[in-house]
Design a protein around this nucleic acid. Structure first.
Length: 270
DNA sequence: AGTGTATCCTGCAGGC
DNA sequence: TGCCTGCAGGATACAC
């Protein structure tokens, strides 16, 4: 569910409210979202104060002192927010009771999300397995092309692999490919330098405008205050099978590979 | 080594 | 109305 723009929106909100708050108690209602020992998980957070909230790919990094990071991956339906906001929590999985009587809630319908505690050192190692941040100014079109030529995977699948680019999911992979005129089934190594350049630009444009719109809400996604993202209106192909392409009026098609739907315009994407 | 598939889980929409 | 099927924004263990 949440991809880079949705996670970024939540992180920015939480960074305004969470730092300085101390965890008085942690309650785990759905134990499978916490992969480590529950006892250890609780004890490592007890009495700790949130410092900063950051993002790496689709992961929320909540730094608590000292040298300890709570890493939250929202999976398909995970949500983080405060009790008594507009948010309705139907499937609470973890409660964090804070020293100002607020309760931070991790809620997750399908429970594909995960919460883990890492030391700074452990996370640094783990983070190496993730690809570059697509919105980083140091991420250049040449970096993308250099990596693309090493893989025969379909470009849509390639984009979903977090080792290649961090934070891209099915919505923004499809939208970026549409914007750059590339068919989702093309093998990664078939992309020319020019196409890599177009894709690089499309990724940055698609992701940054989605952040400006506070993410895409199709069904479950809500920001930390419980509000929906407004980027759904900007989607050109994702979820629009059978509708007319906005630029050539051919019908948007859906094909399935790697168990995931790919949406594209047969007229615009070769 | 590099890819595709099945799987974790719940809820919802659509067809009959 | 109710049952069944397919599908959903992710990540990963496994088979080939």
């Amino acid at each position: 569910m949440p991809e880079l723009p949705e996670v970024e929106t939540i992180v920015r909100d939480l960074h305004q409210t969470l730092p300085g708050k101390t965890i008085n108690n942690t309650q785990i209602l759905q134990s499978n979202v916490v992969q480590q020992s529950k006892k250890l998980f609780k004890s490592k957070l007890l009495g700790k104060t949130f410092k900063s909230i950051r993002r790496r790919g689709k992961n929320i990094l909540a730094h608590v002192d000292p040298e300890c990071i709570l890493v939250v991956n929202l999976g398909m339906t995970g949500r983080l927010g405060f009790k008594d906001t507009d948010s309705v929590f139907t499937h609470p999985a973890v409660y964090f009771q804070l020293d100002n009587d607020d309760t931070l809630i991790y809620d997750d319908v399908r429970r594909f999300g995960t919460l883990n505690i890492f030391t700074e050192r452990e996370w640094k190692e783990r983070s190496k397995q993730l690809g570059p941040e697509p919105l980083s100014s140091s991420y250049k079109s040449a970096d993308l092309h250099q990596k693309l030529v090493t893989s025969r995977a379909p470009i849509r699948s390639w984009l979903l692999n977090q080792k290649n680019v961090a934070g891209v999911g099915n919505i923004y992979a499809n939208e970026s490919l549409y914007l750059s005129g590339i068919h989702p089934g093309r093998s990664a190594n078939s992309l020319t330098k020019l196409e890599s350049n177009l894709l690089h630009q499309a990724l940055q444009k698609t992701l940054s405008s989605a952040i400006n719109n506070r993410g895409t809400t199709l069904r479950n996604y809500r920001d930390a205050s419980g509000l929906k993202g407004t980027n759904g209106a900007n989607l050109t192909v994702y979820g629009r099978e059978g509708e007319s392409c906005v630029s050539c009026s051919e019908q948007v098609s859906r094909i399935v590979f790697s168990n995931r739907s790919a949406f594209f315009c047969p007229g615009c994407q070769k």
